[in-house]
Amino acid sequence: MGLLYAVAHLSFRRYSTYRAATLAGIFTNCVFGVIICFTYIAVWEQNPTAGGYDVTDALTYVWLGQAMLMTVAMWSGGATDELAGRIRSGDVALDLHRPVSLLGWYLASDLGRAVYHLLSRGVAPTIVGSLLFDLRYPPDVLTWLVFALSVALAVTVSFGVRMLVSASAFWLLDDTGVKQLAAVCATFFSGLTVPLVLFPGWTREVASLLPWASYLQVPADLWLGKLTGLDVLAALGFQAIWTVILLWACHGALILANRKVVVQGG
């Protein structure tokens, strides 16, 4: 435990050394936040209750989207990015040699990163957004806590997906294609471009069951108070189940990968 805590801590420190990149990222988040807000305002003028959201919900959703973007490392920038490179270079053999679980190591490292990105790329744009627009906030402490838990689970789900994508490099050598596909899926099915609540008919049902719904739609609905009572537990349970499934899949993939490296020689 001491080790994994140290890994997370050092990972946090390491990401925090890239200050210029962080500032540039925050600026970009703010610019996109503003642009998307004006688009949404136009949409909600046409249909003030689209997807069960009012315009305040919609604008809040935009800034939550900007905040979650790097926190879950939707496209790239997660600690898992390293793995594919280490597989390609063969350095992963050294990682496998260490008496530490590779999965635990990368998870700890990615959590450290996520905390940093939440505090910088998450909080800063949200503050800017709240200065520029009228936004909605969780009404009570319990909602804040539930939201925090949901964000943590969003990170573990996205970690599971990204880890599987990176581990594909054990078999494909190059994970670029899979990574691009995964980024497209994440952008679309997380509700970053269009909230899942606006998806028509059955597509909404399906999208809500996919792991990417954990990235943004679920935490946003909790923040906005769209879910109450047992629905809150169901939402957190949904994220927890995907976390378990994905981490278990990662574990299995790494066992196979280990066998491949050790028996077949990489």
Partner: peptide
């Protein structure tokens, strides 16, 4: 202990001291 000349066990982005600190905990 193993050293592969063309590879490194150290963490690329961390100061050397931190790599040693992690290894201390690993081992």
């Amino acid at each position: 202990g193993v050293v592969f000349g063309q590879r490194t066990t150290l963490w690329w982005d961390l100061p050397l001291r931190d790599s040693f600190e992690l290894l201390r905990r690993i081992y």
